[in-house]
């Protein structure tokens, strides 16, 4: 284990001095947080009846009924601590970008600079080198995910939202939270593992990026396949599709609502988007997602172990 520890420290030495990786992490996190803040502000503003600059009753109109306020306040729950720890994960779909970038520039970079040679001469075991590099990439992705989760409460505090307010705030369903966190992490790592394999296979940064972009495009293109039948199964077996098939069960998309004054309640909007339909049960979809990760790691290890290092 000692060798592992020092090997990981070596990876830290190499990764921590790369400003570009830090920049990509910051940009991706900023984009995720910006999307979350947009939704958060909408939830806060819709409650901020009477607050300057907020959405609210037309000036001069009678104050809203109590039932209206209560119903609207219920929409704020997901953005209040601790439920916001889970809500913010809905915006983690950009996280694979961090994994892919880190994987391609580090692994492909080692081939481009030729640094793969001294590393493999020093380490001897190619599998051990790849495992160390993979763990380092996983740490980078995990840290970004942790920062994103922490952003929920931080944003709540930063905006001074919900202070002294009373509304039905849901708790944090720990099981769902852990499952969504796991799916988000595994999805990002699976994309990163595919990128590692493609960077090893092409022995370059540009080749790694090009093929990973092509893979992602095909992967996303298959998401437009109709649900049901063989096409639906194929869609749910893709990397993005398997993740979506699990997440849609764990986190059904909230329905758009409108206020029906006649019945005094929130009702579904007239034009609801169709609830996502999947052909694979969530257990099989989760297995497919894990299989992507394992298969990509195994393919990268096999390719690196079997190749001649001629750089």
């Amino acid at each position: 284990m000692g060798g592992w520890r020092w090997g990981l420290l070596a990876e830290w030495t190499r990764l921590s001095r790369r400003w570009d990786i830090g920049l990509v992490c910051a940009l991706v996190l900023a984009a995720c947080v910006a999307m979350y803040v947009g939704a958060f502000r909408a939830a806060v503003d819709v409650m901020g009846v009477g607050n300057p600059g907020s959405w609210g009753p037309v000036p001069g109109a009678p104050p809203p009924d109590d039932w209206f306020l209560a119903a609207m306040l219920s929409l704020r729950g997901p953005y209040a601590f601790p439920a916001n720890l889970l809500t913010v994960l809905d915006y983690a779909w950009l996280l694979p970008v961090v994994g892919v970038y880190t994987a391609v520039v580090t692994v492909g970079g080692d081939f481009g600079w030729g640094t793969v040679r001294p590393i493999l001469i020093a380490r001897r075991s190619r599998a051990a080198f790849l495992a160390q590099r993979s763990v380092a990439i996983a740490v980078v992705v995990s840290v970004c995910l942790a920062v994103l989760v922490a952003a929920g409460p931080v944003i709540q505090i930063a905006f001074g939202a919900f202070a002294g307010e009373r509304f039905p705030a849901p708790g944090l369903p720990l099981g769902t939270f852990a499952a969504v966190l796991g799916v988000r992490l595994v999805t990002a790592l699976a994309f990163a593992a595919v990128a590692v394999f493609l960077a090893v296979a092409t022995r370059s940064v540009s080749g790694g990026f090009a093929l990973t972009a092509a893979f992602t495009a095909v992967n996303l293109g298959l998401q437009s396949l109709p649900p049901g039948g063989a096409a639906g199964v194929l869609r749910d077996l893709t990397l993005s599709g398997s993740a979506a098939a699990v997440l849609d069960r764990l986190r059904p998309a909230p329905l758009d609502v409108v206020v029906d004054y006649d019945v005094g309640a929130l009702v579904p909007a007239a034009h609801q988007p169709l609830a996502p339909q999947h052909s694979l049960p969530p257990e099989l979809a989760a297995a497919a997602l894990l299989a992507w990760l394992v298969a990509a790691v195994a393919a990268a290890a096999w390719r690196l172990s079997s190749m001649d290092i001629t750089e």
Binding site: G2, G3, L9, T13, I119, R123
Partner: peptide, 15 residues
């Protein structure tokens, strides 16, 4: 120095 230090760590040498 950082290059060589990282290489030594990769080879399993402790800090």
């Amino acid at each position: 120095r950082q290059n060589l230090e990282a290489l030594a760590l990769t080879a399993g040498t402790a800090m």
